[in-house]
């Protein structure tokens, strides 16, 4: 009974702390969806492999989206002709390197500021490296899903079929190109025509929808965190969590499975703060926003499995090595 009461208190404390941040997160992501035009942004960004990767990775500062909102944005970026370095950098870094997430991490780990800053630094290192690797792929089409390729601006040999001959709802543009209306990427294009009031209503609608979806995952994640804290014997957790290597692996697996939104994942990690190594908490905070179960589902709408596999392997290895270094030499 005592255990249950403690568990529930923990559970609600996590939720009550996380919900405001979730609200802020969905507000930004919904505003972005309806008010920002990526095309203008792409024109401003550097195109070089390394600078592009860096610029893409830092774009999250202006696009505070969590890992559920970044895939649609990255998809729009690619469709509108952003280079691979920018898109992949954004995809991997934006959920972590943005003001809302930084603030939430700060709130959670005020006592260990190194976690807050290293989270940003490690994410930046990993994202820029992977984005750089991907920039070797000059033509992204072979690793993209066909549906995305079809929306890309330059229609080449393979795509000679007039878009209007395919199924779907299309809007014919003045330049002869067609935009698929039943597709998220295209929806943005028609937004500017709507009056502000309608747009704001759409924003609130979108907020509610995201809040429900992400909130449910948050509830499940908080339940797991609370359960682990009260129900699993402390000796076991300490044995797993105090080892330099197993703690990192355990937290990375947890990050991938729990799929908690990056805006609120620091509160989840916080409940492991006293039992797990600092490196492993960082591993959770760095790896979770890049790759998790929910995210893989989203990435599948953009990349072919091969590309996701590369991102996953590269990201996991680098995250492991960096946080192991942290465990061995820093803390």
């Amino acid at each position: 009974m005592e255990q249950l009461s403690n568990g529930l208190t923990l559970f609600f404390s996590l939720l009550v702390e996380a919900i405001p941040f979730l609200l802020i997160g969905v507000t930004f992501s919904s505003l972005l969806l309806f008010f920002v035009d990526e095309r203008t942004l792409i024109k401003l960004l550097p195109k070089g492999p390394l600078m592009g990767a860096l610029a893409g990775s830092l774009m999250g500062v202006f696009f505070p989206v969590c890992e559920c909102g970044n895939v649609p944005v990255a998809r729009r970026l690619i469709v509108q002709g952003a280079p691979a370095s920018v898109a992949v950098g954004f995809l991997l870094a934006a959920p972590t390197i943005n003001p809302v997430v930084f603030w939430a991490t700060w709130v959670a780990f005020r006592d260990q500021p190194e976690i807050v800053f290293l989270r940003v630094i490690f994410t930046l290192i990993i994202a820029v490296t992977i984005a750089w690797v991907f920039s070797r792929q000059k033509d992204l089409r072979p690793i993209l899903q066909n549906a995305v390729v079809r929306q890309m601006p330059q229609v080449q040999k393979k795509e000679q079929v007039n878009p209007l001959l395919r199924s779907g709802t299309y809007l014919l543009q003045t330049d002869g190109a067609a935009i698929q209306l039943d597709d998220p990427a295209a929806v943005l294009a028609q937004k500017p025509d709507q009056p502000l009031a309608t747009k704001l209503q759409l924003v609130v609608d979108n907020m509610i929808q995201e809040l429900k979806e992400l909130g449910a995952v948050l509830v499940l994640g908080s339940a797991i965190a609370a359960f682990v804290q009260v129900a699993i014997p402390r000796d076991w957790i300490l044995a797993l969590g105090q080892n330099f290597i197993t703690s990192i692996i355990a937290m990375m697996v947890l990050a991938a499975v729990v799929s908690i939104c990056s805006t609120v994942d620091s509160f989840f990690a916080l409940s492991f703060a006293s039992t797990f190594t600092t490196g492993s908490q960082l591993a959770f905070l760095v790896f979770g926003p890049m790759i998790d179960l929910k995210n893989i589902g989203l990435l599948m709408t953009l990349f072919k499995p091969r590309a996701i596999f590369y991102i996953f392997i590269l990201g996991a290895q680098m995250c492991f090595i960096l946080t192991l270094f942290m465990n061995l030499y820093v803390s």
């Binding site: 992501s29 919904s30 969806l33 559920c68 909102g69 895939v71 649609p72 597709d183 998220p184 929806v187 309608t198 209503q201 759409l202 609608d205 979108n206 929808q209 995201e210 429900k212 979806e213 992400l214 909130g215 449910a216 995952v217 799929s259 179960l293 929910k294 589902g297 989203l298 709408t301």
Partner: peptide, 16 residues
Amino acid sequence: VQPAPGHTTLLPPQIS
């Protein structure tokens, strides 16, 4: 007005 695009999660909306 229009179903908002983009965000998908592990759970169907009703369950959420």
